[in-house]
Nucleic acid binder design. Structure first.
Lengths: 197, 197
DNA sequence: ACATATCCCTAACGATCGCTCTAGAATGTG
DNA sequence: CACATTCTAGAGCGATCGTTAGGGATATGT
């Protein structure tokens, strides 16, 4: 049995708070002191529970992907048709990126846009995750071409890059103050670009 | 006549270098020491010539808009037809955002995505500039509707928001490593969303 | 040549950065 | 109860942040 004084705060609650702070300000601009005041714990407690700032951030990213950002993986996994996947992705992003319950936009997209050279590691990790999403979308399109749902001359890579850019643009617009309706209009316009055949 | 020892560096050259550094790393992540080493001048010289870091940044933004970013204002001013304006905007952005001559993407879009609370002022200024561009585009579309070039049921605001988002997405993709061809494909797809009438 | 004005460099300012040592408080097991 | 263990809280570590005096060097105007 684990002896000693138990931790006075809930680790998951603290992690969720850290997600929000990193989401709002990004990696570099989030100082440890801002984290400790927001989470309501001292710096040594934070370091004991999560390791250093970079480790905490990476765990916060995982937590984000398992919660707020899970709709992307769900759309990719649950929708079999490529077009429905994209429609659902854009529709759910319109709501997720503008919810008043949490910071605007997407943490994966916006948290490491500006980072100092010594934060290049976490920036590379997030870029990797973004690229992974793009590849998954591209594979979905390739399958649709294979199945004849998209014409053979469709460029799966180009189409995936386009919808990835649209999601990134929606995140940026949300952070600039656009509302859910604005983002849904972006989504509607983006669907007009779907290959007609 | 101005007496005393003249400045040993060219102010415009130094400003251009500052543009590049801010473009690459963003506002907060660009330290004054990085600026001084890159520009090859001491900190007191920098402060004497440009004022503090915030003032230098805002002047660098103006310089950016007058040089690398001037293609946006030119497209809006020189093209009378809305569709041609957007086509030219997206085409020139594909090249500008991926040129190997300078950092990727757009300074206005990417330089203040992550900033600490005390940098909120410069972030607000850049958001203002981005919103101004969106409004200019929206006005262009409103004119086209007035002139009958776009059907009366076209939503000028929604369309402008869409193409603004596409530009922001192209900037993000460029910073993630996409090439000129990738961005041109995004532009092509975005033009398929043009209202058919 | 001289006085003057401005420059550049060295050094350092206070504040904050990420991070940790130390001491005391609180819980578990015997 | 004592003891072992692990937590919390305050203070402070060296480094870097943006910024600015101080002083020698270098140019112009007379």
């Amino acid at each position: 049995m684990r002896t000693g004084r138990p931790r006075s705060f809930d680790r998951i609650d603290a992690l969720d708070s850290a997600v929000v702070v990193f989401w709002e300000h990004g990696y570099d601009a989030t100082s440890v002191s801002l984290l400790t005041t927001t989470l309501g714990i001292g710096a040594p407690s934070l370091y004991a529970a999560f390791g250093d700032k970079q480790t905490l951030f990476l765990e916060a990213v995982d937590r984000y992907l398992a919660t707020y950002g899970a709709f992307v993986a769900r759309a990719l996994a649950e929708e079999s048709q490529a077009r429905r996947t994209v429609e659902r992705l854009l529709r759910e992003a319109s709501a997720a990126y503008t919810s008043p319950e949490h910071p605007r936009g997407c943490l994966l997209i916006s948290a490491t846009t500006n980072c100092s050279p010594q934060s290049a590691g976490v920036a590379a990790r997030l870029r990797e995750l973004r690229t992974g999403g793009l590849r998954a979308l591209e594979a979905k399109f390739a399958d649709a071409i294979q199945a004849g749902k998209l014409t053979a001359d469709t460029d799966a890579h180009a189409l995936a890059t386009f919808y990835a850019a649209v999601l990134q643009g929606m995140s940026a617009q949300a952070r600039d103050g656009a509302g859910k309706d604005d983002l849904q209009h972006i989504a509607d316009a983006a669907m007009r670009a779907w290959p007609s055949g």
